[in-house]
């Protein structure tokens, strides 16, 4: 039977209200309420709508998670919550609830780094992480390469402009597809040719220099797709949407995997974890596994439900911190829209 501390995790950094419950590194519940439908007509997440929806969903989602996990709130040993990065108004709903729960239940509170949660969540599915891993985080909000060694997280690279998921959304809009665009492009690309159009691979040329070796840039790619579509239309050529989708997707996942494996080779770490909403992309999963096999690197990708934002990843990180004896957060901590990965737990200033 599973043992370890019972930890409840709350995630409200964007548009998903997530509440997860773990015992040790065993997942007991992972409940998510999404407000994505309310944002669709705006073509992106509207912060005030997200914040309102979080408050509506917060208590019902906590209650549902407790029911599914078959635990009482009073049995919880610690509360974990996303402290950043994310939309501040959205984060505040989760952190206010978490502070109140920790205070009322008299248990420790861990306000944690969302990005670290995306890596650690894989322990719930594939067991303990090796001592050193590279994390590739790709979603609508982030594109980052992170090194985890022991309990230290270290940033290796990040996007200079658009996040990978943002590029998917923008190209989807350009092609007349609904928001969020990722799943639509993935699906259309199945019937297209990924080699049909040679879209640019940002920051991959040999002249790129040291600084951006492990950084990403996707805004040029988005512009190239727009220009290509316009040129074809002006020339009176029929545009094959599946070919555009597949070629765009190929460019993104080619860059993501190239850089992720470059990070592995540079650091001598032969374990890669991929997380974030874009990790649900079927071509990214396939290409990563194919290249990993050639390089002798092991790749771990949680199932899609654990890749997108969820409370389980926050609970998993909280549980790991509690078991390692980390210092909990003070009730006076501030949430923050920008949080370097090196800060895994937020502490109060006072």
């Amino acid at each position: 039977m599973a043992n370890g501390p019972l930890v409840l995790g709350i995630e409200t950094s964007c548009d998903e209200t997530g509440v997860g419950i773990v015992r040790g590194s065993t997942l007991l519940a992972d409940e998510v309420a999404s407000s994505i439908d309310e944002h669709a007509r705006f073509g992106g997440v509207v912060p005030e709508i997200a914040s309102r929806a979080h408050l509506e969903a917060m208590v019902p989602t906590i209650e549902r998670a407790c029911r599914v996990a078959k635990v009482k709130l009073s049995d919880v040993d610690a509360i974990a919550v996303t402290g950043g990065p994310g939309l501040v108004g959205a984060l505040l709903v989760g952190t206010a609830s978490a502070k109140a729960l920790a205070l009322a239940l008299d248990v420790p509170l861990f306000a944690v780094n969302h990005l670290a949660g995306h890596i650690v969540v894989d322990e719930l599915e594939h067991g303990p992480l090796p001592d050193s891993v590279i994390g590739l985080l790709v979603s609508g909000g982030h594109s980052s390469l992170i090194q985890l060694t022991g309990s230290d997280f270290h940033a290796l690279g990040a996007t200079l402009d658009d996040a990978a998921g943002e590029a998917f959304d923008k190209v989807a809009r350009l092609l007349g597809l609904p928001f969020p665009g990722g799943p639509w492009i993935d699906q259309l690309a199945q019937s297209g040719d990924g080699a049909a159009i040679a879209f640019p691979r940002g920051l991959t040329s040999p002249h790129e220099g040291e600084v951006n070796r492990l950084n990403f840039s996707f805004s040029g790619l988005k512009t190239a797709v727009a220009r290509w579509v316009k040129q074809q239309e002006q020339a009176g050529n029929a545009v094959s949407i599946p070919d555009v989708a597949a070629s765009f997707q190929e460019a993104v996942v080619d860059v993501l995997t190239q850089k992720a494996f470059a990070a592995c080779q540079e650091t001598g770490i032969d374990h890669l974890v991929i997380g974030g909403g874009v990790a649900a992309n079927s071509r990214l999963r396939a290409l990563a596994l194919e290249r990993a096999a050639r390089l002798g690197i092991s790749v771990r990708i949680p199932r899609p439900g654990l890749c997108t934002d969820n409370g389980a990843m926050i609970a998993a990180l909280g549980s790991r911190l509690l078991m390692s004896g980390a210092t909990p957060s003070d009730l006076s901590f501030s949430t923050t829209s920008v949080l370097p990965i090196e800060t895994v737990v937020l502490n109060g200033l006072g």
């Binding site: 914040s51 917060m58 505040l92």
Partner: peptide, 14 residues
């Protein structure tokens, strides 16, 4: 919202 979210969660926990 900070106040309302806190009040709701206190009531839930207590």
């Amino acid at each position: 919202r900070v106040g309302v979210a806190s009040a709701q969660s206190l009531g839930l926990a207590w």
